[in-house]
Structures are given as C-alpha cells and as structure tokens.
Amino acid sequence: EIHIRTNGEEQARKVYKMLAKRNYDVKIEQHNGQWVVTAS
C-alpha cells in the first residue's frame, strides 16, 4: 500500500488520476487538513 501526502486538493487529484490509470485502487483522505492519497 502506498501513502502519498500532498499539499492540496489539486495535487491530490493529479496523483489520484495518475495512480488510477495504473489500475491501483485509490482513495483520497484528509488527515489534519492534509490530503493523503492511498493506493493499493
């Protein structure tokens, strides 16, 4: 499982799309105001 911390919604969405293209199961979560993308 991969966790990627991003500094904002826009970046989180870019990372989300990139990983989704590679057939990862991707989730975006917010932790303490930080956007974290989780891929498995």
Rank of each mutant, 00 (worst) to 15 (best):
N7H: 08
L19H: 01
K21H: 09
K17M: 12
A20T: 09
V37I: 08
N32F: 06
T38E: 03
A20N: 05
H31K: 11
D25S: 09
K14D: 06
H31N: 09
G33F: 04
E10S: 11
H31P: 02
Q30L: 11
W35H: 01
H3V: 15
E29D: 06
T38H: 08
G8H: 13
I4E: 01
G8K: 13
E9M: 08
G8W: 12
N7E: 09
E1M: 14
K17C: 15
D25P: 05
Q30K: 11
E9S: 05
Y24H: 06
Q30R: 10
K17T: 10
S40G: 06
G33H: 08
L19T: 01
E29P: 00
I4G: 01
V26Y: 01
Q11S: 08
T6K: 04
E9G: 04
Y16S: 10
V15Y: 11
N23R: 08
K21T: 09
K17R: 10
V15I: 15
N32T: 03
V36A: 04
Y16H: 07
I2F: 12
T38W: 06
G8N: 15
T38P: 00
K14N: 05
R13Y: 09
S40W: 11
K17W: 10
N7I: 10
A39K: 03
M18K: 09
V26N: 00
R13V: 05
V36T: 06
K21L: 10
Y16L: 08
G33E: 05
K21P: 02
K14S: 05
M18W: 15
V37L: 03
V37P: 00
I28F: 03
S40I: 13
Q34D: 08
I2M: 06
S40D: 04
V26Q: 00
G8F: 14
Y16A: 15
N23Q: 08
H31Y: 12
T6P: 03
N7M: 09
S40R: 13
K17D: 15
K14W: 13
M18E: 15
L19W: 04
E9P: 11
Q30N: 11
Y24L: 09
H31W: 13
A39Y: 13
E9H: 07
E10R: 12
K21C: 15
L19N: 01
L19A: 02
R5P: 05
I28G: 00
A20S: 09
D25R: 12
E9W: 14
V15F: 11
A39N: 04
K21I: 10
R13G: 02
E10G: 06
Q30S: 06
A12L: 03
I2G: 02
A20L: 15
T38I: 15
D25G: 05
E9D: 03
R22D: 07
S40K: 14
Q30I: 12
Q11M: 11
R5C: 15
K27G: 04
N7Q: 10
H31M: 13
R13K: 12
L19D: 01
E1Q: 13
I4H: 03
I2V: 06
V15A: 05
V37Y: 00
V15H: 03
N7S: 11
N7Y: 11
R22H: 13
S40N: 09
A20Q: 13
K17Y: 09
Q11I: 10
E1Y: 15
T6L: 14
E9A: 07
I4P: 02
Y24G: 04
Q11K: 07
V15T: 03
R5A: 07
Q11H: 11
W35L: 02
I28C: 15
N7G: 07
R13F: 06
K21G: 10
Q11Y: 11
I28N: 00
N23S: 07
H3F: 12
I2L: 08
G8Y: 13
S40T: 12
R22E: 09
D25H: 13
V37R: 00
N23C: 15
E10V: 10
L19M: 05
E29Y: 14
I2P: 02
Q34C: 12
R13H: 05
A39V: 15
A12M: 03
K14R: 12
M18A: 12
G33K: 04
N23L: 09
N32M: 08
S40P: 06
I2T: 04
H3P: 02
I28A: 02
V37S: 00
N32Y: 06
R5S: 07
I4Q: 02
E9L: 15
V15C: 15
Y16E: 11
N23H: 14
Q30P: 03
M18Q: 11
V26I: 05
N23W: 14
N32K: 06
T38R: 08
Y16W: 05
K17P: 04
Q11L: 11
E1V: 14
Q34A: 09
A12T: 02
N32A: 08
E10W: 12
V36E: 04
H31L: 12
K27P: 00
Y24M: 10
K27A: 06
Q34K: 08
R22A: 13
S40E: 05
R5V: 14
T6V: 15
M18C: 15
V37T: 01
Q34R: 07
A12V: 01
K14P: 02
D25I: 13
K21F: 07
Q34H: 11
E10M: 10
V37H: 00
V36M: 06
R5I: 14
L19Y: 05
A20V: 14
R22L: 15
Q30A: 06
E1I: 15
V15S: 02
K27M: 06
K21S: 13
K27T: 09
K14L: 09
E29I: 12
K14Y: 09
V36W: 13
Q11T: 07
R22M: 15
K27Y: 07
T6W: 04
I2W: 13
E29T: 11
Q11R: 07
W35M: 01
R22V: 06
Y24T: 04
N7V: 08
K17N: 13
V26L: 03
A39R: 04
V26G: 02
V26T: 03
Q30V: 14
A12Y: 01
N23I: 04
V15P: 00
H3C: 15
G33W: 02
I28T: 01
T6R: 04
A12R: 01
E29S: 11
V15Q: 02
H3K: 13
I2K: 05
E10H: 08
A12F: 02
A12H: 00
V15W: 14
Q34N: 07
H3G: 03
M18P: 01
S40Y: 10
E10I: 09
L19E: 01
M18T: 06
K14H: 06
V36K: 03
K27L: 05
Y16N: 04
R13L: 10
G33Y: 03
Q30E: 11
R5Q: 06
D25K: 14
S40F: 10
K17F: 08
G33Q: 03
V26H: 01
Q34I: 14
I4F: 13
Q30C: 15
Y16M: 13
I4K: 02
W35V: 01
V37K: 00
Q34S: 08
E29Q: 09
I28M: 10
K21W: 06
L19V: 02
A20R: 11
W35Y: 04
K27V: 07
E29V: 11
R22Q: 12
T38Y: 08
T6M: 11
R13N: 06
K14V: 05
G33I: 01
A12D: 00
K17I: 12
Q34T: 11
N7F: 12
R22N: 09
H31C: 04
A20I: 13
A39T: 07
I2S: 02
G8Q: 11
S40Q: 08
A12P: 00
N7K: 09
W35S: 00
G33N: 06
G8E: 12
T6A: 08
Y16Q: 09
E29M: 10
A39F: 14
E9R: 08
A12C: 15
K21V: 08
V36P: 00
H3D: 03
R13W: 13
T6G: 03
E1L: 14
Y16G: 15
Y24V: 07
A12N: 00
K17V: 11
Q34L: 10
R22F: 14
A12E: 00
N23A: 08
G8S: 15
G8D: 15
Q30Y: 14
A20G: 04
R22K: 12
Q34E: 11
E9V: 10
R5L: 13
M18Y: 14
T6D: 01
A39S: 05
V15M: 07
D25F: 12
